[in-house]
Amino acid sequence: MTIAVLAVQGDFAEHEDALRSLGADCFEIRQQADLSRHFDGLILPGGESTVQGKLLRELGLFEPLRQKIEAGLPVFGTCAGLILLADKLSNDENVYFAALPATVRRNAYGRQLGSFYAEEEFSGLGKIPMTFIRAPFIESVHDGAEVLAEVGGNIVAARKGNVLGIAFHPEVDKNLAVHKYFLDMIKR
């Protein structure tokens, strides 16, 4: 199985480490030429969503990836990746892939002093570590999106079909459960 990791900015290398630990092949997408390779799933890493969104468009990656996601490509976004997947942002007029029926609030916990660590239930995975860095959360889901995890009354993970979006960073926690969940999503 081969996973493409969007590598225009952010912590893509940590995702690649997690994928390799699980025995999956991966490669980086930095420009259009990279899209000619075959991939079974796509990861949108943490980072700055404004930067990633701008580079996706200006490097000609946005529309080809949007079409692949719409056609059913499994995609997994963490933090900035969740923002790129949401179909509505409550405090930002931008919308990117609009693939996950969810309303997401950017920088929902405030500045870096609001960043935190928690261990909470993730549907089907039990308690897992969750690192939130200037993180967003999901205010609400609609159109049949499933809530997978909540922390302190806020939704932090949701899925609809081929699209998985989470507000935290399993890639920095050395816990592979959510990456394994995503690989299982692809296998089915």
Partner: peptide, 30 residues
């Protein structure tokens, strides 16, 4: 958590700005 924030900045450019207007230009520029 503080080391993690730096990880999120990787592959990026951090720009010196002296006014809110320059800050917006920097953000727009990526």
């Amino acid at each position: 958590l503080n080391k993690n924030l730096a990880q999120m900045l990787k592959g990026g450019v951090i720009m010196d700005v002296t006014t809110p207007e320059q800050a917006r230009i920097a953000e727009e520029a990526g």
